[in-house]
């Protein structure tokens, strides 16, 4: 049942593969993602890590994955209504379209829609317009995420929306 939730609300596949090494020698597994871009690893212990739909790739077995309600603010800012949350202790791998930049936040920080890949839970998210109603339209930014609090976030340097925008003008 939780797989179904993750599939439809967390943007992930219905089933996950579990790779176990039954031999005594070290074996390799190679993992990748569908988009062109960086893959990062993050350690999870006390801090839960939340992912935007589609960003999660793999995790060590002690990591628990759950689907959380992300809120209307998240949906307005072009992310999902639900988010995937990794808790427990271990390592998580996740990917992006373009480069991944890790950024520590203390205070207010603004991220354009479609560029936030992962963030530590405990920070407050709200959606706002980029610089007032007129400014929001004219700046081409539309809605932006406003993150308040202390923690780490991961940004992707490109967004799929940007590519889609470019290509749809060429059809």
């Amino acid at each position: 049942m939780s797989g179904v939730l993750k599939k439809f609300f967390g943007g992930e596949s219905l089933f996950v593969n579990r790779f176990t090494n039954p031999t005594r020698q070290s074996l390799q597994v190679v993992l990748s993602q569908s988009t062109i871009g960086d893959i990062a690893e993050a350690q999870v212990y006390e801090n839960n890590l939340c992912f935007q739909p589609g960003a999660y790739i793999a995790s060590t077995p002690e990591i628990k994955l759950g689907v959380r309600w992300a809120g209307l603010a998240s949906w307005f800012s072009g992310e999902g209504l639900f988010k995937l949350q990794a808790s427990g202790q271990g390592t998580v791998f996740f990917g992006a379209y373009g480069g991944l930049t890790r950024k520590k936040i203390n205070g207010d920080f603004i991220v354009d829609t479609g560029h936030l890949v992962a963030y530590e839970s405990g920070m407050k998210m709200s959606v706002k317009m980029a610089g007032g109603l007129l400014g929001s339209i004219t700046s081409g930014e539309g809605f932006v995420n406003k993150i308040t609090g202390k923690g780490t976030i991961y940004l992707q340097s490109r967004s799929i929306d940007g590519l889609v925008q470019f290509l749809s003008s060429k059809v």
């Binding site: 950024k103 205070g107 207010d108 920080f109 603004i110 991220v111 354009d112 560029h115 936030l116 980029a130 610089g131 007129l134 400014g135 004219t138 700046s139 081409g140 930014e141 406003k146 308040t148 940004l155 340097s157």
Partner: peptide
């Protein structure tokens, strides 16, 4: 250029 901003500190003033 409009739309080039990916992220920024909340204290920056943005205008067009």
């Amino acid at each position: 250029e409009a739309g080039a901003m990916v992220a920024m500190s909340g204290y920056l003033q943005a205008s067009t």
